Each structure stands twice: as structure tokens, then as C-alpha cells.
Simulated scan of single mutants.
Amino acid sequence: MAIAVRYAAFAAVATALNLGAQGVLLAFYDGPYRLSAALVLGTGVGLVAKYILDKYWIFADPSEGLANHARAFSLYTVMGLATTAVFWGTELLFDRLFGGHWTLVGGAIGLVIGYTVKYQLDRSFVFRRTV
């Protein structure tokens, strides 16, 4: 399977996990900072899942050991800060403009944009392998 197809499939899986976690929280929690809590939860779930998928099946990173994983995950997270800002900004914009289910539609659009940029960042700075 071509890397682009695999990456798109894994991005779809991470997006589903992210938005699913948000949806669950939004369905059951109606307290203060509801959307902020959903964004943080979804981002955490998606981040961990996508890191594992990318490390092993996109970039085939052979490094092992706690120090190597900590370095790679830290860099992976840092590379995701700007793309997370795009994702959160798009979701919050859709929430502000349209509300309801459109909030998560905005999140999905933001994630597509973010993952497109993040691949290049991860390839260049995190895993440093030519794919």
C-alpha cells in the first residue's frame, strides 16, 4: 500500500478517535469549559494513536528504548502544536458561527489541514527518514 494511502487511512482513524472522544464527552458533560475539555481529550487520544501508527507503519522508525521514544514523542508533539492550533481554531470558528454538529465538522476540516502539514514536519524533523 502506498505511503500516502496509508497515511490518509491512519489520519482518518486518528480523526475518528479524536472526534469520537469529543463526541462522548460532549454527550455526557454539560459543565464549564465543555468544548475546551472535549478539545483537550480528543487531541490527546488522537495524538497518541497517530504517533504509534506513524512511528511504526508510516516512517518505520526502528529506534527503541524509553529515551528514544521520549525524544521522538516530544518532537512529534512539538511539531503538532501549530497544526493543533489550526485544528482547534477551525473547530472553534465553526462552533462560534454555526454551533451544533457543525462544531465537529469544523474539527474534521481542521484535522485534514493539520495532518497534511504535519506529515512534512514529521518527516523532516521527527523521524528524519526518507520515505
Rank of each mutant, 00 (worst) to 15 (best):
M1H: 08
M1Y: 11
V5S: 00
Y7I: 00
Y7P: 00
A12W: 02
T15I: 05
T15H: 06
L17H: 03
L17V: 09
G20Q: 10
G20A: 07
A21S: 15
G23F: 00
G23D: 03
V24M: 10
L25V: 03
A27W: 01
F28A: 07
Y29A: 10
D30I: 03
G31I: 03
Y33R: 14
R34S: 04
S36A: 11
S36W: 13
A37P: 02
V40P: 03
L41P: 01
G42K: 10
G44L: 14
G44H: 11
V45Q: 06
V48Y: 08
A49G: 05
K50L: 11
Y51D: 02
Y51N: 03
I52W: 13
L53P: 00
D54E: 12
K55G: 02
Y56K: 10
W57R: 04
F59S: 01
G65H: 08
L66Y: 12
A67G: 11
A67I: 07
A70H: 07
R71M: 09
R71Y: 11
A72P: 02
F73P: 01
S74K: 09
Y76P: 00
T77I: 04
V78F: 11
V78N: 07
M79Q: 10
L81W: 15
A82F: 15
A82V: 13
A82G: 15
A85Q: 07
A85W: 10
V86A: 10
E91H: 05
L92H: 12
L93G: 04
R96E: 07
R96N: 09
R96K: 14
F98L: 15
G99S: 15
W102E: 03
T103C: 03
L104M: 11
L104C: 01
V105A: 07
A108D: 01
G110S: 04
L111W: 11
V112I: 15
V112M: 14
G114N: 03
Y115Q: 10
V117K: 12
K118Y: 08
Y119E: 01
Q120K: 12
L121Y: 15
L121R: 15
L121I: 13
D122F: 09
R123G: 05
R123I: 00
F127T: 04
F127K: 07
R129W: 07
R129D: 06
V131I: 12
